[in-house]
Design a protein around this nucleic acid. Structure first.
Length: 135
DNA sequence: GCCAACGTTGGC
DNA sequence: GCCAACGTTGGC
């Protein structure tokens, strides 16, 4: 089982929007590194849902329910998307500020490469963030 | 609104 | 194949 972090601007698509839909295609990713990460995702993997621009915090956990397939919004056939479903809304969002301030998360890929919209998260980082959300 | 990071494009 | 110019993302 692997863990991931996926960014979305909440005014475009928020965690609550995902809860409302029940399941959604994570489309629109147009970055090669992000694409490779999506292709590596397996059904049952968990991903943090992160709100960029507004909030700037991890707000929930979702599950990968369908592995990478052609992105329905892409006409070139070059890009892929996975399908996700909401799993658990964090009791308390974990802000970027809190993640940056935590030495246990210093190696997080998303902190090192802030523009990457889909990034891997280690098991210990994932569990640490969940612990912070309950603190 | 600004700016840093970084990806892409195009001239050479 | 290099690199400058430019566009986009995302934090502040």
């Amino acid at each position: 089982m692997n863990y991931w972090l996926m960014k979305s601007e909440p005014d475009v698509f928020s965690y609550d929007d995902l809860v409302e839909k029940g399941k959604a295609e994570w489309d629109g990713v147009r970055n090669h590194a992000a694409k490779l990460h999506m292709k590596a995702m397996k059904k049952g993997d968990l991903a943090l849902f992160y709100h960029s621009n507004i909030g700037v915090e991890a707000v929930g956990v979702m599950e990968i329910v369908e592995e990478a397939a052609p992105d329905s919004t892409d006409e070139t056939g070059k890009w892929v998307a996975v399908h996700v479903a909401p799993k658990e809304k964090l009791t308390k969002p974990v802000t970027l500020k809190a993640m940056k301030a935590d030495s246990a998360l210093a190696d997080m890929v998303m902190l090192r490469q802030s523009r990457l919209s889909v990034s891997p998260v280690s098991k210990s980082e994932f569990e640490h963030i969940l612990a912070l959300s309950r603190a």
